[in-house]
Simulated assay, not measured.
Amino acid sequence: LTVLTSQFNEIKEENKKLSDKLSKMKVELLEYLRSLTSNTDSAANKVRRGMSFEIDDCKFHLEAMTRPDYQPLVDNKRIIEKLQERITLMNMELITEREHNEKIIKDIKDEVETQCGENRNKETSNENIEYDSLNDEMEYQMYLFTLYCNHPVTGEFMESILEVHKDELLPTVLDKAYELMKLAPHIPIERCRLVKYHYVDDLMEQSFDLDEFQHQTIGQIVGRASRYYPFGLFLETCEESEISDKYHDGANNIMISVVDVSTGKGPAKPMRVEEGWTVRELKQHIGEVYSLNSSCMRLVMKNYNDVTDISDVGCTLEEIFRKSTHEDRQVLTLIL
């Protein structure tokens, strides 16, 4: 369409130049003819008539070119109309193709987002599984102990929950227990220690002294991996000049009542004994505590509704206590 328009404009420009040229020639010819009007049969007159015919013929063609039914113009218009129709169809095809391409791009984006969403969900699921696994592993490595303590000022029996990691050293665990029970500034931490404690039996089973266990972790000390333990920890305190006795695993607490045949039964007092002791070793220990002669002692133990004389028994306390209940083994009567 652009080429045809350009050609049409060139034709119009040439026609205009030709018309101008003819007009100029006509003026020159008229001037020349005026000079020859006196001789009509002359060669110049004949030339003038011939040129006049040519000029009229040019006028005829020029007038024909300006009419709507001029064939070259009709052909050009027809070509232009066909080109316009073709351009319209091509525009429609381009629009359809563009819409199709946009739909394909949208489908690709949706598919990519779907895949990314699935990957994100999968990654999130994997992260959650890994997080839960880490939580389970971390939880498995955390130990929970019931912590007990007698307040050094008020004497109040306190109880709390101590949570520590299995790889924490004993001094670190002691620091946490000290802070948990809020013993500062009533007593320095140097006068505190942790003891394996059975609340039901009221038994200090084993002391964890720093001179022996300071380089061991709580996991190494308690022995087995478990979230909860059947025993607790007792935060034991002592006086400034007091030296705490070491408690060994396999000990027991008993109540000793001293009976003098002349004065009657005395009050029961607690005593810690080792289950590996023999009765003879028990007598020696009682003699040291009460400043008594062990050879003059008789020991009797309550057994259900009866009492048993164990003074001359040759076995260990563990074997004796194995046949009795906890309540029975707590009461031993020393007869002088």
Rank of each mutant, 00 (worst) to 15 (best):
Q7E: 04
E13T: 09
K21F: 11
L29Y: 04
L33T: 01
R34C: 04
S35H: 08
S38K: 07
N39Q: 10
N39D: 08
G50M: 13
G50K: 15
F53A: 11
E54S: 07
E63V: 12
E63A: 09
Y70E: 03
Y70W: 04
D75K: 12
N76D: 00
I79E: 01
E81I: 00
L83Y: 09
L89A: 01
I95S: 01
D107T: 08
E111F: 12
T114M: 06
G117T: 00
G117D: 07
E118P: 10
E118M: 12
N121Y: 12
E123Y: 06
T124N: 11
S125E: 11
M138T: 05
M138Q: 14
Y140R: 12
Q141N: 07
M142W: 09
L144S: 07
F145L: 05
L147Q: 03
L147D: 08
N150A: 11
H151K: 03
E159C: 04
L162H: 08
E163P: 00
T172R: 04
A177G: 10
M181N: 02
L183P: 13
P185S: 11
V195R: 05
E205R: 05
S207W: 11
D209G: 14
I221E: 14
R224A: 05
F234S: 01
T237D: 02
T237V: 09
I243Y: 09
Y247A: 02
I254L: 15
M255G: 09
D260K: 02
S262C: 13
P267A: 08
A268H: 09
E275R: 13
E281S: 05
H285D: 07
G287F: 04
S295A: 09
N303S: 05
N305H: 13
V307L: 06
T308H: 08
D309E: 15
S311Q: 11
T316P: 03
R322E: 12
L332K: 06
I335F: 15
